[in-house]
Each structure stands twice: as structure tokens, then as C-alpha cells.
Simulated scan of single mutants.
Amino acid sequence: MITLTVNGVDHALDIDPSMPLLYALRNHLKLNGAKYGCGLGQCGACTVIVDKRPVFSCLMPVSAVGKRAVRTIEGLGSVDKPAPIQQAFIEQQSAQCGYCIAGMVMRAQALLDERPGADEEEIRQHMQPNLCRCGTHMRIVAAIVEASKTLAGTARQGASR
């Protein structure tokens, strides 16, 4: 029995410990935001956050997660109240086919959790492992820059109170 904490909820799963986290999320927990892209950790479509770090869930066996928290796109915002990064992706029309977007959002969220206010160069460097086959990288970067500015302003407002 494997226990995974996903989006703040504990799940006891009777699965093979060597199963990739991606399959546990999609097939057992029905969290389908992370996508299977390449199975080799070369595209980033399967990116989720584990213990505040972006990881390729296609490569990580569930046994390697341990007690660390897993966060998926389903754990960010909602349709009615998107997270700042999701709202920025909507406003910048960053998705074309949408296949890579959940992974892009999660990698960006991991950066912005650590560095609200990250500049464009930091964002570009951080996002390099994730690929968009449709070529919307410019809009994706613009969305992350927008969210970074929003979050930096929120952090400053909170500090001045």
C-alpha cells in the first residue's frame, strides 16, 4: 500500500511501488491534468510539483515520493477562481493545442512559489525543460512574466501591512 498526499488529500493506493507517479495520478486518482508526452522526461507535459520542486511525473516512481506533498494543476485554482498563473495564461492566450499547458503552468508555479517577481531571464531559464510543440513559447513566457509581476505586487502589499 502506497500513501500519496496529492493536493492536500491523503490517498492510500494498492499499486506497484515502481509505478510512475503519472500513472498513479491519471489512472488511479483520475487527475488527468498531467499528460503523457514522451515517457523520457524530455518534454515536460507530465510536470507536477513534489515538495515545492517541478518533477517529471513520468520518471518518478511512486515509492520515491515518500511523504512529500504532490501538487497538480487540479490543486491550483478553479474555473471560477483561477490561480494568478492560470489567469495570466488565459489572458495571454498561451494555449494552442493545450497539451503542454498543465506542465508549463506547474513548472512556472514552482518558480513563482520560490521567486515571486522572477524576471524574464530567470523565467526563460527555468522553463527550458518544458517543450511546446505548437510554438507558443513567447505567449507562455509573457504569461509567466505577467503572473510574476502580479505576485510580486501582492507580496509587496502584504509586506507593507
Rank of each mutant, 00 (worst) to 15 (best):
I15A: 13
I15S: 10
I15Q: 13
D16W: 02
D16Q: 06
P17E: 07
Y23I: 05
N27C: 00
N27A: 11
K30L: 15
K30C: 11
K30S: 14
L31H: 00
N32S: 15
G33E: 07
G33Q: 06
G33C: 11
A34C: 06
K35C: 09
K35V: 12
K35A: 09
G37E: 04
G39V: 08
L40A: 12
Q42H: 00
A45I: 02
C46N: 04
C46F: 05
I49E: 01
K52I: 01
V55L: 02
V55F: 01
V55Y: 03
V55P: 01
S57M: 05
L59C: 08
L59K: 09
L59Y: 08
M60E: 01
P61I: 15
P61S: 12
P61C: 12
P61L: 14
V62A: 06
S63K: 15
A64C: 06
V65Y: 01
G66A: 07
G66I: 09
K67H: 08
K67E: 12
K67Y: 00
R68A: 13
A69V: 12
A69P: 09
A69W: 02
G75L: 09
L76K: 07
L76F: 03
L76C: 10
G77N: 02
D80H: 13
D80K: 14
P84T: 11
I85A: 07
I85S: 08
Q86G: 04
F89Q: 00
I90R: 15
E91T: 13
Q92R: 15
Q92F: 00
Q93L: 09
Q93A: 09
A95C: 08
A95K: 05
A95H: 04
C97I: 11
C97N: 10
C97Q: 13
C97P: 03
Y99K: 11
A102R: 02
G103C: 03
V105Y: 07
V105K: 09
V105A: 06
Q109P: 02
Q109C: 07
A110N: 10
A110F: 03
A110H: 07
L111A: 03
L111D: 00
L112D: 06
L112M: 09
E114A: 15
E120T: 13
E122P: 03
R124N: 05
R124L: 02
H126A: 08
M127W: 07
Q128C: 04
P129R: 14
P129N: 10
P129L: 13
L131V: 14
C132K: 08
R133Y: 10
C134W: 05
G135K: 13
H137G: 06
H137M: 12
H137E: 10
M138N: 13
R139H: 09
V141I: 15
A143F: 05
I144R: 04
V145S: 02
E146W: 10
K149L: 12
K149R: 15
A152E: 14
T154N: 06
T154C: 00
T154S: 08
R156P: 00
R156C: 00
